[in-house]
Design a protein around this nucleic acid. Structure first.
Lengths: 209, 209
DNA sequence: GTCCTATTGACCAGCATGGTCAATAACTTT
DNA sequence: AAAGTTATTGACCATGCTGGTCAATAGGAC
């Protein structure tokens, strides 16, 4: 990253880096095309190489920006309150969902980084930290006594996690096909609440027991 | 597909087509490389174009072979017996798993076809049939009275489906990392049975009720 | 006018692509 | 053994895209 890029307005930096992220997430590092990036970003080829020394430097800047943005915007909101496992996952899902809709390119790119190999050696310790921290976000300060006692806790937690994954994936597919209807947003929340109730009925002790 | 290819021994046809499938599934139609295919298949470039008129014809032959193989090898085994929903999904999972380990390239390619767009217009009606048929395989002749009555059936079935998806995905990831230990295969089955028991405890009426 | 920075897009060599084709190897038939 | 037919090779080609360069120029500051 060269100084001219640093002198850019934040919004323009964000614009260029997120377009690069979209390209990198979709095609991976090698197959990503700088030509497509400049086309999508609306700048000339020359200007990109006036901002960055080469493709790799662009990727690394991109990765650093994404990592920093992700951690500063999410870590803060994840302070753990005491609550049941289902409520915890519900809260995390909502927070993630907000972030994914507000910064979709960054979110997609971070998941790409999470699984990518090769160029990222410099980031693997950071990723490791992220992994550990996301574990804490899931389990720290969770009230485990809510679970019914006749089924294994580990099993229950896995199944609950898969239920959230499945539900989120289904919603994503639905929105991708049908588009989000903002008048119906209440219905979506109701439906989500219904799933939560069902899960409580399945996995928690009966009330008052 | 030209006649010389038709005159080939079945095993050689299978070999070439499955190598092509691997390439197509991994990179998609456009990014797939005929050079890599001939390299992996151990034949010369010229020979490939002696067998097929061009890349598209190769893809179409590949798709047809995969579809036929998949349907003839799976549809037969899917006759529905009366059973609970959990047992049904467990049975389907086992059948699928066997097919995926015996014909991984075909299996991967069929899922690719299932989601791919563009070149497949000719196959979309076939895919539609496959979709309908897989629905029947899931729901036909299922004993719904086993479900406990205080939770919604649709919700329960979705959650059970997600549990299977999650478990299968986790197993795949585990095997990819650690490799399959054939001495431990009993443990895997035990573990799977444990999940089934838990699910029955969660979603079915208590015995004798 | 004179700097200095920002910005362009034509241009380059390199590489991989899908596809061709003359040469030849390997069988069959006579 | 000769002739004919089919299988098989790999060098070769035009094309298109790649990451990256650079002379030209536009814009603003002094």
């Amino acid at each position: 990253m060269k100084t001219p890029f640093r002198n850019l307005a934040d919004s323009q930096q964000y614009h260029i880096l997120t377009t690069a992220m979209a390209e990198f997430s979709e095609h991976g590092y090698k197959a990503a095309s700088t030509n497509r990036i400049v086309g999508a970003a609306g700048i000339s080829k020359g200007l990109l190489y006036y901002y960055f020394e080469n493709k790799e430097a662009l990727y690394l800047s991109t990765a650093e920006f994404a990592y920093d943005h992700f951690t500063t915007h999410l870590l803060g909101r994840f302070m753990t309150e005491a609550e049941g496992f289902i409520e915890r996952l519900a809260r995390l899902s909502r927070i993630k969902h907000v972030y994914f809709t507000q910064h979709p390119e960054i979110a997609r790119f971070v998941t790409h980084m999470y699984y990518a190999e090769g160029l990222l050696e410099a980031y693997q310790s950071k990723m490791q930290k992220l992994r550990e921290w996301s574990l804490r976000a899931m389990y720290d300060n969770v009230d485990m006594t809510l679970f019914r006692t006749d089924i294994d806790r580990e099993t229950a937690m896995k199944m609950i996690g898969w239920t959230f994954e499945g539900y989120i994936k289904e919603m994503e597919q639905y929105f991708e096909k049908e588009g989000i209807d903002f008048d119906q947003v209440d219905t979506y929340f109701e439906q989500f609440g219904g799933y939560l109730d069902t899960m409580r009925k399945l996995y928690y002790k009966e009330a008052g027991q």
